[in-house]
Design a protein around this nucleic acid. Sequence first.
DNA 1: GGGGCATCCGGAAACGGTTCCACATTCGCT
DNA 2: AGCGAATGTGGAACCGTTTCCGGATGCCCC
Lengths: 339, 339
Amino acid sequence: MAAIGDVARLAGVSKATASRALSGRGYVADDTRRRVEAAAAEIGYIASPDAASLVTGRTKNVGVIIPFVNRWFFGEVLEGIERALLGAGYDLTLYNLSEPGPGRARVFDFFLARKRVDAVIAVGVDLDEHEVASLDRREKPLVCLGGSGGAAARLSVDDRAVGQLATEHLLHLGHTRIAHLAGAGAAAMPASVQGQRRRGFLDAVAAAGIPAGEHAHILEAEMSMPGGHTGALQLLGHPGRRPTALFAASDEMAFGTIRAAERLGIDVPADLSVIGVDGHEYAEMFELTTVEQYPGEQGRLAVDVVLRLLDEATADPLPDSGAPLPTRLVVRSTTSAPR
Amino acid sequence: MAAIGDVARLAGVSKATASRALSGRGYVADDTRRRVEAAAAEIGYIASPDAASLVTGRTKNVGVIIPFVNRWFFGEVLEGIERALLGAGYDLTLYNLSEPGPGRARVFDFFLARKRVDAVIAVGVDLDEHEVASLDRREKPLVCLGGSGGAAARLSVDDRAVGQLATEHLLHLGHTRIAHLAGAGAAAMPASVQGQRRRGFLDAVAAAGIPAGEHAHILEAEMSMPGGHTGALQLLGHPGRRPTALFAASDEMAFGTIRAAERLGIDVPADLSVIGVDGHEYAEMFELTTVEQYPGEQGRLAVDVVLRLLDEATADPLPDSGAPLPTRLVVRSTTSAPR
DNA sequence: GGGGCATCCGGAAACGGTTCCACATTCGCT
DNA sequence: AGCGAATGTGGAACCGTTTCCGGATGCCCC
């Protein structure tokens, strides 16, 4: 309703001065500024972001593309991003990119191509070169959190190291028959993450001199609690050649595994040690040993990078881009030495 | 980069005609339209939504405020909303309104007050009158999904009936000592939902002639799996006066309960029947009897209403606003007759 | 054959801000 | 005293669309 012209008139100044007074850019006498602010408050003036972004080219808005919102890790990242963005006065528009179907192309070619967002944060999604080129062409900063794709800025946990760390924990306890429940490379889950964790597992068992295949079995399953459950049922079904320890690619899978073990009368950790990765909110309840990562914090970090990228004044060439995100082994009660 | 003027020049028409040709509004010769479309495609023209919304007053964008993204129900609703909105060509900006702190006021007074969104969907949040007035003043349609607050459009499950249905299922099986794990009225969880489910429970046990308090105990807990876990441990700790059935206010709480029972050596369902509500993705794995609601569908429905509200051409006064959202009792293996 | 209507198109005025430029004033400094 | 820089302000252009208005057709039908 109220436009800046109204404010200007009420304060007895020009639109230009009113704009300067309210935005804080350019010279304006303190006295004038106060008059303008009072006038704005009086008529409840709120600037139209559309008009502003039309001329400045900046909407204060970043797009977030994310494959799930209902896996704990992703939900947590999203919350972290949202909080940080809101704190910085930015809006967040959400693109839930599930499968790489036709909807996916539409998001890139239609939604993101419009001038709606200043930048894009892609979490846990493998971008193909056409997609990053599409963003690149519009000069939209892109930061990737996990996943692959040649983005300018990339934040990532060292998933190979995570897999290795988890596996070594089991090895140090004395286990020699270790299984790995890997995430299925399915759908939107970034293959890189899966692959790296698996690689870490293989590296660790190989280094321990355990022959892959026989004593270090890998089974793929959906990266969720039911996925872990059915996977574990399958893996633990043969009493004779059962592993004594299991490394699940995510905490949710580990929960499913624990439940499956209970079903089968297998005691955790006496008969089976279980370790996961994520640091899930429920890990404490399950007493789960896990390699924590901090998804909320990761989201916050991604926002930091985006904001810095948008603030070309500080043209640092991505200072910390190299270091992997922090992780930590937290030992609880689902792992112990084998019987 | 490319503006509509460029398209017009290339096609040899005026900006006005180019706009009409591309938007489909107004008269334009088929031949001309094709020429304009070809020109637009050639230079990769994409309309600036900012400029358009500046003049039309319509951004194709709706705001969604939601207390959590990481509770299954809310995540599912959000996904449903997102899909539907995207399908209709709308963007979704997310406001994660956790606690009613200062951040909350900021969302309403700053973020939503700007002309960024055409409408607001509030899911599971109790709006106070100041907040709905604030939206009302800007003539932004508001549809509420669950929660309370005097919105024009309200979609809601009949939570009292849900509570009653769940409890009656237990009663019909012959249980006479039934506990209810209620959600804590904490933080952002809409009190109305909790209250209504609890009321349904009380109505049902009262109708069955069971004295409240003694044989129909209610315990509050956080509405999550660990919340259900600790709540159940407390509730089932005294072997003497233990209930034979438990109605959990959400499936996640029910999962926690099941796990607690296993810990305590209580067999489900032989020694304890458990029923939840939600129709959680994991319910099948837990074999959980539950009252399903369909959050994804609810989200889709909310979008339908919003879209209709925005399309004032069809000025239906909210046709189906009265009927509660569908729910369904799904019986699995966590409930049975008492021993 | 001519009035009315539907169709087609272009000029120009919005929409609501920001910013460039020009102009005035004051201030600090030699 | 004089001059450049810093400060303060207003006019006007501009961002990229949509839409109003008005003119120019062509067509139907009386």
